[in-house]
Design a protein around this nucleic acid. Structure first.
Length: 137
DNA sequence: GCCAACGTTGGC
DNA sequence: GCCAACGTTGGC
């Protein structure tokens, strides 16, 4: 199983919106970036991801799970763009802020701290555990 | 609100 | 195929 991080601006699609969808989940649509799409192409059902609020909050707020593998993005006719579906699993005990991530030496190489614009990112198992640790376990 | 980083587009 | 111009994202 692989780990990922999904970035969203809360005014567009928030963790609360995601939670409201329950186990049905929701298309992670609107991605118009090849790197992000390529990551989604490699995702499998059951992969876990962090849900990150960009812009105002800048913090990881919850855990999601891939519940449908890659398929065409329903928000466009352009066949280049595909996406997966994700569903909320649980909120973090406490949100982990970008500042916390940047202050943690073991997370110095995390994509979140280095490539601010990539909206779908891979997370290593080690990084996953450290984030959970920072959130209070 | 500004600006840096980065990706995409389009002219040549 | 290169590269300048432009648009978008997201941190500060």
């Amino acid at each position: 199983m692989a780990f990922w991080l999904f970035k969203s601006e809360p005014s567009t699609w928030s963790w609360e919106d995601q939670l409201a969808k329950g186990d049905v989940g929701e298309e992670w649509d609107g991605i118009r970036n090849y790197q992000a799409r390529n990551h989604m192409r490699t995702m499998k059902i059951g992969d876990k991801g962090f849900f990150y609020h960009s812009q105002k909050d800048k913090e990881i707020v919850g855990i999601v799970e891939v519940c449908a593998e890659v398929h065409p993005d329903s928000t466009t006719d352009d066949e280049r763009w595909e996406c997966v579906d994700i569903k909320a699993v649980a909120p973090l005990n406490a949100p982990v802020t970008l500042a916390q991530v940047k202050a943690e030496p073991r997370l110095a190489d995390m994509v979140l701290a280095n490539n601010t614009r990539l909206s779908v990112q891979p997370v290593t198992p080690a990084e996953w555990d450290i984030i959970l640790e920072l959130s209070g376990g």
